[in-house]
Simulated scan of single mutants.
Amino acid sequence: MDVRAFVKTRDIISGVFVFFIVFITLMTLLATVWIGMLIAKHISEPIERLSRKAMGIAKGDLSVEIDVEKTGDEIEELSRSFRRMKENLRGMYERLERERDFLGKLLDVLPVGILYVSPEVVRANRTFLEMVGKVMGPEELEAKVSKEQHLRMERIGGSGGDIYILEDVSSIVAAERFRTWQEAVKRIAHEIKNPLTPIRLNLERLSRYVEEGKRSSEELVEMVKAILKEIDRISGLINRFKHFSLSQPVRFEEVSIRDVVSRIGKLYTSAGIDVTLEGDRKVKGDPALLRELFLNLINNSVEGGARRVVITVDDEYLDYRDDGRGLREDELESVFVPYYSGNPKGMGLGMAIVKKIVEDHGWSIEALPSKRGAHFLIAFRSKNSSA
């Protein structure tokens, strides 16, 4: 009886013990879950707040205020870093706004029209609107440019969109026309100046002969004829200018170098300039242009103080030398550049015209170094010279 009671008591105590063990386990589990939820809430709530504000910033609202979480841990450091990032973004955005406004003002004052076309936006500067009146697409713009002769368009392609640059070239065309006329006037002035040199020399010599009375009437008549011939040449130049035909085509025919130089030499010989020709060659060339070539060469020599010119011709070359002041080493290339002149009163077109005439005939010319006087070498080329 006592044994049964003992066993029964033991079973009751064991059941109570198991109950308490289970109860304590459940309570511990519940407490753990509750504490975990408190900790999670402590961590997640600040992060959720930061996440909501990050979404606002991502939508472009940089006025969002980010409060620093006073947690004393990584959450507080994260919120501080996020706040600094937001302030940096706002500073960058404000700078970009200022730069965009400045760029817009800069584009508006440009003298060319700018049109930007992308899938999202089409924008134009003020000059573009003044030129065409409105913002338009590329197809409409190209059609307008094709009709307006004074407009020129250039397209610059890009990954984000295309830029169309529109320019009004009417002022450029006007400036180019003015420059062309200016060049023509300078050319005419220079061509008129060429025959004036032998005219002046002959008149000075004629005046001296008349005063001295040492020359026959035939010699005086010959000098007057030479002067009249050069005056006729000036008249011809003026008529060419009048009819806008300065750039006359090269008219090739068989010409003797000796004949051209001899006729020109007489103009200068009577004025005290010795022009000597050694050799001869017949070439296919324009007599008027070849005359212009030698006039420019000899006038260049006279302006350089030369009193003697020697021209030597063979089958391949024409060698030209004078006894004037010559050229410096640094002038050998620049002497053919338009408007370059070693003479302060010169226009710098003579030798440029010489080079142009030589090249129009298919030949070449170069200035060579010389200890005394100027030295030029013209090389004949076969396509325009006689066999």
Rank of each mutant, 00 (worst) to 15 (best):
D2M: 14
A5G: 13
F6K: 15
V7R: 13
R10H: 15
R10M: 15
V16N: 12
V18M: 10
F20H: 14
I24G: 12
M27D: 12
T32Q: 15
W34P: 02
W34Q: 13
K41V: 11
S44R: 12
E45I: 13
I47M: 06
E48T: 15
M55L: 15
D67I: 12
E69Q: 14
G72S: 01
E74Q: 00
I75W: 09
L89A: 10
M92V: 14
R98M: 06
R98K: 13
F102P: 11
L106W: 01
L115Q: 00
S118E: 06
T127Q: 08
E130L: 05
M131S: 01
G133W: 00
P138A: 03
E140Q: 10
L141A: 02
A143K: 15
A143D: 12
H150K: 12
H150I: 10
L151T: 03
L151Y: 12
G161Q: 00
D162W: 04
D162F: 00
I172S: 11
I172N: 11
A175L: 09
R179T: 08
E183K: 14
V185D: 07
R187N: 10
H190E: 12
E191D: 05
K193M: 04
K193L: 10
T197I: 14
I199D: 00
R200N: 05
R205Y: 03
L206W: 03
S207M: 03
Y209C: 13
V210K: 05
E211S: 10
G213R: 06
G213S: 07
L220E: 09
V221P: 06
M223D: 02
K225W: 04
I227D: 00
K229C: 10
R233V: 04
G236S: 04
L237F: 07
L237M: 02
N239I: 12
N239P: 05
H243D: 13
L246S: 09
Q248E: 15
R251N: 08
V261D: 04
G265W: 06
K266W: 10
T269I: 10
D274S: 14
V275N: 01
L277D: 07
G279A: 00
R281A: 07
K284R: 15
A288S: 12
A288V: 14
L289A: 09
R291W: 06
L297Y: 02
N300E: 06
G305A: 05
R328H: 11
E331G: 02
E333W: 02
P338I: 05
G350H: 01
I353G: 09
V354G: 01
K356F: 02
E359K: 00
G362A: 01
R372P: 02
H375N: 09
F376W: 07
A387H: 13
